[in-house]
Design a protein around this nucleic acid. Sequence first.
DNA 1: CTGAAAGCGCTTACAG
DNA 2: CTGAAAGCGCTTACAG
Lengths: 339, 339
Amino acid sequence: VPEPSSPDRLPTIEAVAAAAGVSKTTVSHVLSGNRPVARATAARVRRVIDELGYRPNTLARSLKMARSQTIGLVVPDVTNPFYPALARGLQAALVDSGYLLLLADTGGDPDAERAFIAEALQRRVDALVVSAFGLTEEELDRLAGAVVPVVAVGAELAGSRLDCVTADDERVAADAVAHLRARGHERIGTIAGPAGTAVADRRLRGFSQALEREGRFDATLVAYGDFTRDGGRAAAHALVRDPAERPTALFCANDLMAIGALDAARAAGLAVPGDLAVVGVDDIDAAGLVVPALTTVRIPSGDIGRVAGELLLSRMEPEARRAPRTILVGHELVERDSS
Amino acid sequence: VPEPSSPDRLPTIEAVAAAAGVSKTTVSHVLSGNRPVARATAARVRRVIDELGYRPNTLARSLKMARSQTIGLVVPDVTNPFYPALARGLQAALVDSGYLLLLADTGGDPDAERAFIAEALQRRVDALVVSAFGLTEEELDRLAGAVVPVVAVGAELAGSRLDCVTADDERVAADAVAHLRARGHERIGTIAGPAGTAVADRRLRGFSQALEREGRFDATLVAYGDFTRDGGRAAAHALVRDPAERPTALFCANDLMAIGALDAARAAGLAVPGDLAVVGVDDIDAAGLVVPALTTVRIPSGDIGRVAGELLLSRMEPEARRAPRTILVGHELVERDSS
DNA sequence: CTGAAAGCGCTTACAG
DNA sequence: CTGAAAGCGCTTACAG
C-alpha cells in the first residue's frame, strides 16, 4: 500500500487521475491534446487539475521525451553589456517555443568553460550558445558538437564544424583603420584582446592586414588587454608611455578597453582626439556616455542573440543535418568625438 | 530483446554496468561515493566510464532525488547593469554547491513574471531569486512561496513572508535628500520608479518623508519613470519645462533615469549642477562615465546576489523552517559632479 | 563487497 | 473514447 501523498509533496498526474476517476493516460492527453478526450471527461479533469493546483513535473516529461527545453548560454562576462543584450535577443527568439536559458558566466576561464559545458550536457540541454574565450574551436566541437547543436556567437571559428553567428571581425577592424587613415593618422596602434581567442585574433588580423596593405603596420604598436576597462587602461598606458614612440590613434578591440584607453590618456595628460584618437568596438551604452563620446564600430548584439536562437530552432528540427553555417551580422561605424 | 543502443543515443548507466560486468547499483556508487566499492571494481568501472564517455543524466537523477540543483533568477531587465552584477554574485555563491541559474528577463511585465515563475516551478527549481516589478508580494508568496524558498532581491517587501535581500531604500532616498539639502537646495524634485513596485514606492516614501520633516515636500515636483533612460528623460522633461515651477535638484530612483534626466537637462539648456543638480541610485559603471559624472547612491548589487545565494543555501537545508529574514546591505553616497 | 528490484512522474504504443 | 503497462535513466532501501 503506497503512503498517501504527504502535504508538502506536489500533486502528481497519478493524484489527478485518481481524483478525476480516469487513467493517467487520459489526464496526460487532456494536457497535451495529443488525443481527443470526451468533453465531459476533459472538463472534469481540468477542474481537478485546478483544484489540486497540479503542474506537470517537467523533469519527468523531459526524461521521457529526451528533451529538456533548455538552452545553455555560456558567456565570458555578464557584466560586459554586450552579453546581456545578446541574452535578451536570444531569449526573445526562444521563449515562444518554450525554451528557457541556463546561464553561465565563466570569466573567460577555460576550465570554467569546460566545466559548465559538461554540466549543461549532463543536464541534457537541447542546444548550446557559447561565447568561448579559453576554448579552441576544435575543443568546443569535440566537447559538445557531437551531442547537441552548438552555435558560437561573437566570433567566427575558421573551418569549424560548428554554426556561428558573428560580425565580420576582420572587416570591423579594417573599417576602423580606414576611418582613422581618412582622418590622417599614420601611427595607428591597437589594443587587442587576449591572444588565442577567436574574436581577438580576427580583429587583430583585420587590423594588421589593413595597415600592411599600406605598409604602415608597426608591431611595436600592438598591445594586449583582456576586454575589460582595467585591461585596456593598462595596455594603453604601456603604449603611450614613451612620447617618441607613441601612436596617434588607437583601435581597441572592444568598448570597455577603449574606455580604459580614455582613462589612460587622461592620466597621461593626452587630449583625445587631439593627441590620441580612440576607436572601440561594440557600441555599448557607455560608449555614448563617456567624454569624449567614443567613436566605435557598432555590433548588433541583440541581433546576434536573436539570429543564434533562430538558427538553433532550425537545428533542433528532426531533419536538420545540414552543413554548418556562419551567419554574419552587419556592423556600422558610429563616429563620435574620440576620433 | 532490447535493441542495441543506437549510435546517437548517449550511453546510460546500464551500458556502463554491462560493459564493466557489474550492476547499475555499483556504477552508481562508484560515482557518488555513497558506498564503498572494491578498488579493482571501481577502477574497472571508471575505465569503462572514460571509454564510453558516460555522463550521468541529471534529469533522471533530479527526478529521483526530487531536486534539480537549479535556481531560477527573474529580473525585469538584464540590460540594466544592476542585474548582471547581481547575477554574477549569485552565481559565485552557488556554483560551488553545484547549482546552475535559469535566467528570465521579464521586462517587468507581470504576465511574463507569472509565466516564468510557473514554468520554473514546473521545472522543479530548488529556489527562486526574484526581482519582481509587476507582482505584489502577496502574489509572489502565493505563487511560489509555498513550494520553494524564494528570496526577493532589490526591494523590501513589507510584512511579507518571503526572505529578502535589499538596500534600505527609504534611507537611500533620505541620504540623497540630505546631501541635496546640505548643498542648499530648497526645491527638490524626484523621478520615481513605476508606482506600485516595491523599490519605487520605498524610495519615494523615503524621499517624501525626508522632505516633509522639513516642510519642504512638494507633490508637484514628483514625476514617474520606468527605470529606463528614456523614461527618465521624459519625466525630467516634464518637470523642468516650466522655468517658474522648476526644481533645482532631482533625486532619480536609479542611475538609468538619472542619465535620462541629464539628457533632458542638456536638451533644455540647463547646466548641471548649476541649474539642476541630479542624483541617482545604483552606481552602475555608466554613472562614472557620463558628463557631468553622476552623483549617486551606490547599491552593492554583487553583494545582494551573493547574500541572496547564501541565504538560499541555508534555506535549502532540510531543517530550515525559520522565520523569513530581511537582510539589508549597506549603501553609500558617491559624490561626483552632478550635484 | 555487491545486486535485484522498486520507484521518481511522466508519455505513448498497444489494445479494446 | 479510454486504460494497463512499459520505459525514460537514475538512486537507494533491502538483502545477502
